[in-house]
């Protein structure tokens, strides 16, 4: 399945234009004010390639912030239920950065862990991810520190890596990717499998954040109870930005949005940073303050998740770092915690 193709620079736009005319819905990065966001494409001219990364990770296209799972209406003494409309046309999402694609690979594990999550999985199977390797990482990026790379292929169906004037190296990674390549084969030149190593190395050389965090945090009682958590979390104000811009955070809450006649049961994003996240009906809160909540966030990503799934739940996109109102920095925190744990790390 590791066949390689090249896509000439001038062919990229032609290919996207034809995708736009096809029965697939094309979703690609576009300007929105000062940001670049994934949006359904109206014309190919709206697509931009000028972005380090999109404002939001791609996860919302699979796991929306708020999703109706059923609607209900009171009828006499009974209740009438209505399933949400699950119809979905096939989609191509173009331009997903390797960190965000890797986030999808992580969500795939979570949403298929004990039974299949039909809402998530349906969108996944109807969507082909065309990844786009990263050549100019931001100052907040740290994907190599968590075991990924600016050209990593996890989560993508096709991955394009810019190879200068020669165009894009096209890696076919899944059957969905192969299908897309087969349908539009005439845009892609068969060629020898050129190595993307030089591109990877050049991009990595531009990254200032390169610590060894990939081994994760080894949990001990001492570490769990260590005063470092209160120290690092003191400035945390308890909003949900970090979780909501994270490509891998997947916690949700099921709530009823209702009135006297009926309502919608919806699945809303939730965040371990909120006090409400763990508050019991009795009023007792096992995570009474921000230190234990932030500890949960860090340990879930660097300890609990790796224990269960064998990989970190952080892809190093840096969004939580740049969007935090008070500069909470998970990269710095993970390093500090590893130091407490006694692990030497390079900076």
């Amino acid at each position: 399945m590791m066949a390689c193709r090249m896509l000439r620079p001038e062919k990229l736009e032609e290919w996207l234009a034809e995708l736009l005319r096809s029965e697939r819905r094309l979703i690609a990065p576009q300007r929105q004010g000062e940001d670049v966001v994934f949006q359904p494409v109206q014309t190919v001219d709206d697509i931009t390639l000028d972005y380090i990364n999109t404002r939001w990770p791609v996860k919302a296209w699979f796991f929306p912030p708020s999703e109706p799972v059923l609607r209900y209406r009171y009828q006499g003494s009974g209740v009438e239920l209505e399933q949400p409309n699950m119809a979905l046309e096939p989609r191509v999402i173009f331009g997903v950065r390797p960190c965000d694609a890797a986030g999808l690979a992580i969500l795939d594990q979570v949403f298929n862990s004990d039974g299949e999550d039909e809402f998530y999985t349906r969108r996944r199977t109807m969507t082909t991810i065309v990844g786009l390797s990263c050549t100019h990482p931001a100052a907040s990026c740290f994907c190599t520190s968590v075991g990924l790379s600016p050209t990593a292929s996890a989560g993508s169906d096709l991955l394009l890596t810019p190879m200068g004037d020669a165009g894009y190296l096209v890696e076919t990674l899944t059957a969905r990717g192969e299908q897309l390549l087969w349908e539009y084969g005439h845009y892609f030149a068969a060629g020898e499998c050129r190595s993307k190593e030089a591109v990877t190395e050049a991009a990595e050389a531009r990254m200032s954040r390169q610590a060894a965090l990939a081994q994760g945090i080894e949990l001990s009682e001492r570490l769990f109870e260590h005063p470092i958590w209160a120290e690092v979390a003191r400035k945390c104000l308890g909003c949900g930005v970090c979780a909501y811009v994270c490509p891998t955070c997947h916690c949700f809450d099921i709530v009823d949005d209702s009135d006297a006649w009926g309502g919608v049961r919806c699945r809303n994003w939730d965040s371990c940073g909120f006090s409400l996240f763990t508050r019991h009906a009795s009023g007792h809160n096992p995570r009474p303050q921000q230190d234990s909540r932030y500890r949960q966030r860090v340990l879930h990503k660097f300890s609990y998740f790796p224990q269960r799934w064998g990989r970190l739940m952080c892809v190093g996109c840096g969004r939580c770092v740049t969007n935090c109102p008070v500069n909470m920095d998970i990269y710095a925190t993970a390093q500090a915690v590893l130091q407490v744990q006694g692990v030497k790390h390079e900076t």
Binding site: P65, C239, G240, F274
Partner: peptide, 10 residues
């Protein structure tokens, strides 16, 4: 709006 409530927190 994604209801992250950062506006409220700060």
């Amino acid at each position: 709006c994604i209801r992250c409530y950062a506006c409220r927190a700060v």
